[in-house]
Design a protein around this nucleic acid. Structure first.
Lengths: 118, 118
DNA sequence: CTGTATCCCGGACGATACTG
DNA sequence: CAGTATCGTCCGGGATACAG
């Protein structure tokens, strides 16, 4: 487990802010679940599948995810251009870990109102 | 795994927004790691241990965590009043799942700048 | 089709002061 | 000591328009 020793002698847990913050952003898990379910997807397909997601939000989030090695992006040189997004191996690991957390949430509050990803 | 079937025939992943959103809030993991490390803690101790955390933020977060069964709160009727916070069993499960995610983040970006919890 | 550019708004969080 | 109240700020994200 990632640790560090501070000046005052405290043993602390280290983390990578860039990726961890990304994980906590609004549509990240929706996107990962979607890509895991359908494999390669186009921008517009993802837009249609996720409720409330705007082009802007999807664009920003996919860029962040790609830069952090969670999502892979392939551009097909057709006319008009097509772009295919898919999960990397790391992305699948992150997605699975997030779903464990999700399932724990459900176990703790079995009677609470539920929402869903698609 | 929590699932639901939508009108259009899609099989979806369900989740509990109340707890999951709480998990993504800024100081949640810091608080859980701290309580796991020290056991029962007082309000002011926690305030001193977590960099940048204000009374307001800690107050709100602890209340949310208590309402969702993640943190236990005991009030000691002394003068002045003392309050002890600790993790519930569910809280410890959530904390462990979050640390797995954290560790995955570190593995994916080994060279990235690191921050720490205490 | 796949984005980017602008503008705007609400909610989360920081700072500070005050109370039982 | 353990909070609550109030105010201000900043950023994520929604709406819309536009570009390659």
């Amino acid at each position: 487990m990632g640790c560090c020793l501070k000046d005052d002698g405290e043993l602390c847990t280290t983390y990578t802010p860039a990726i961890y913050d990304l994980i906590t952003k609004k549509y990240t898990l929706s996107i990962l679940v979607l890509l895991d379910k359908y494999g390669k997807m186009r921008f517009s397909e993802m837009l249609r599948k996720i409720d409330g997601l705007t082009q802007r939000a999807l664009s920003i989030r996919l860029k962040d995810l790609e830069e952090n090695g969670i999502v892979k992006r392939e551009v097909i040189s057709s006319r008009p251009v097509a772009t295919l997004y898919s999960l990397t191996v790391q992305g699948r690991a992150i997605k699975n870990a997030m779903l464990i957390l999700l399932e724990l949430s459900n176990l703790i509050s079995p009677g609470s109102p539920k929402d869903y990803f698609c």
